[in-house]
Structures are given as C-alpha cells and as structure tokens.
Amino acid sequence: MDTEKYIPVLHLCDLYQIEISFFKELNEEGLIELVSRQNSMYVHEDKLYKVERIIRIYRELNVNIEGIDVVLNLLEKVDKLQNEVNSMQSRLRLYEDDH
C-alpha cells in the first residue's frame, strides 16, 4: 500500500477532535472504508471530502450514524436531480437558440 495516498485515522482524530470509535462505527456501517496496515488505520485521500461532510452532518445537525447514512443518500439524490436539471436546461437552451 502506498501510504502517501492514505491519511492516518489518528491524524484525522486529532485534526477534527473526534474519537477513533466514530471512524470505526462509520466503517462498520459502510459509510467509509478504513484500510488497516501495520496496526494503524487509514482513509484514502480521495475520501477526505466525504469524511469531512460526515463530520459536519454529525456535528452541525446532531445526526447519529444511522441518520448520516440517510442524509448522505438524500444528498446524493439531490445532486443527481440537480445534474439532470442542468442537463435539461442546456438542452432547452440549444432548442431555443435554434428557433
């Protein structure tokens, strides 16, 4: 494993002032993937945005782990719908420009 692309969970715990058990619960619920190497746990740097989003939901909205999963699914659906709206608006503009 190339540890350059992974962030130690203990570093994230210090950075965000959060217990390691929180990350373990997220992993158990399938919300994030922890990689274990040499008695340490890591998160891939590509997943840092999702980790930060989860922490904000947890702290700012006081949402429990199960609720975080629901919120993330809803946000994903909103993003998908927004992309569809943007695509439709672009197609509509093309149609309107032709007429």
Rank of each mutant, 00 (worst) to 15 (best):
residue 25 E to I: 13
residue 65 I to T: 13
residue 88 M to T: 09
residue 47 K to I: 00
residue 77 K to L: 10
residue 29 E to C: 14
residue 24 K to Y: 03
residue 60 E to I: 01
residue 95 Y to N: 01
residue 89 Q to A: 13
residue 19 E to T: 07
residue 61 L to D: 01
residue 93 R to N: 10
residue 43 V to P: 02
residue 90 S to M: 07
residue 17 Q to W: 06
residue 58 Y to P: 06
residue 55 I to C: 03
residue 46 D to K: 09
residue 49 Y to S: 08
residue 35 V to M: 00
residue 21 S to Q: 14
residue 36 S to W: 05
residue 32 I to E: 08
residue 97 D to Y: 13
residue 97 D to E: 08
residue 80 K to H: 09
residue 76 E to M: 00
residue 5 K to N: 12
residue 75 L to M: 13
residue 3 T to C: 08
residue 69 D to C: 06
residue 2 D to W: 07
residue 98 D to G: 14
residue 14 D to C: 05
residue 52 E to M: 10
residue 13 C to F: 09
residue 88 M to N: 11
residue 7 I to S: 05
residue 91 R to V: 07
residue 85 V to F: 04
residue 40 S to Y: 05
residue 28 E to Q: 03
residue 61 L to V: 01
residue 17 Q to C: 08
residue 67 G to A: 13
residue 55 I to R: 01
residue 4 E to I: 00
residue 79 D to E: 14
residue 53 R to S: 11
residue 25 E to K: 15
residue 72 L to T: 08
residue 34 L to F: 04
residue 99 H to Y: 08
residue 14 D to K: 15
residue 11 H to C: 03
residue 26 L to F: 11
residue 56 R to E: 09
residue 36 S to C: 10
residue 27 N to Q: 00
residue 50 K to P: 02
residue 76 E to D: 12
residue 19 E to M: 04
residue 1 M to E: 13
